[in-house]
């Protein structure tokens, strides 16, 4: 369980005068759940990339707990992400030719963090997420099942944070609701801080706090509304 602290964060792309993302300050206490909304181009994806360390901040800092990830070199940042941040993406990014179980295990296997306990946990997570045949080839699964495998993969390393980028956008409503419920429930069970970028109102309602982005700035924050 890690708290998010952003201060003075700016993300700029070469050739653009205005920053794509500009967050003077954002604090999310450990174990809380945050929904991020906004139109396309509002800076949501850039925010995901910044807080997961997939992209380096132009200036400012992003900290999870005590770790300022924007100050880490690429290799250490990758390692931090691998151990502390579980990622769920709109397009699943599962690897065909492998089974559901192998997909869940892949990141651990590639970073040589493979232990018998991890195997146990992978099978347990697949059971929890409702994948009946973990050794079935990933291509034969339905889209809803694929996203649930992706959720199991995100949770394997017992991350302190789960970041989901439009997890329900490529699913139909019913399946989307199941996946939303699953993510929120598991994040709570595992005690992970949750950040979800979404347009899905049903999913937003399940989360404690919501911020809206526009032009790379926070234009609305439910926490401030409540405080005010």
């Amino acid at each position: 369980m890690l708290a998010l602290d952003i201060s003075g964060l700016e993300m700029r792309f070469p050739g653009l005068d205005t920053p794509v993302l500009s967050l003077p300050r954002l604090h999310l206490p450990a174990g809380r759940q945050l929904a991020v909304t906004g139109a396309s181009g509002s800076g949501k994806s850039t925010l995901v990339n910044a807080i997961t360390g997939l992209e380096t901040a132009t200036s400012g800092s992003v900290s999870w707990g005590e770790t300022n990830i924007s100050a880490l070199p690429t290799g250490r940042r990758d390692a931090f992400r691998a151990t502390h941040i579980g990622l769920v993406m709109q397009d699943f990014h599962l690897f065909s030719g492998l089974s559901a179980f192998e997909n869940v295990m892949l990141p651990a296997r590639l970073s040589r963090r493979l232990t018998p306990a991890a195997r146990e946990r992978a099978l347990h997570l697949l059971e929890t997420t409702g994948i009946a045949r973990p050794h079935q080839n990933i291509e034969t699964l339905s889209r809803g099942e694929m996203q649930r495998v992706a959720v199991a993969r995100a949770l394997l390393s017992k991350p302190g944070v789960i970041v989901a980028d439009e997890p329900t956008a490529s699913l139909d409503r019913r399946t989307g609701e199941d996946v939303s419920e699953l993510i929120v429930r598991l994040a709570r069970q595992e005690g992970a801080t949750l950040v979800v970028v979404t347009h899905d109102l049903a999913l937003m309602e399940r989360l404690d706090r919501r911020i809206a982005l526009d032009g790379g700035r926070i234009v609305e924050d439910s926490a401030e509304v409540r405080a005010a």
Partner: peptide, 9 residues
């Protein structure tokens, strides 16, 4: 995706 999900470089 491999990198994002934690595979080292």
């Amino acid at each position: 995706a491999l990198r994002a999900f934690g595979a080292p470089r």
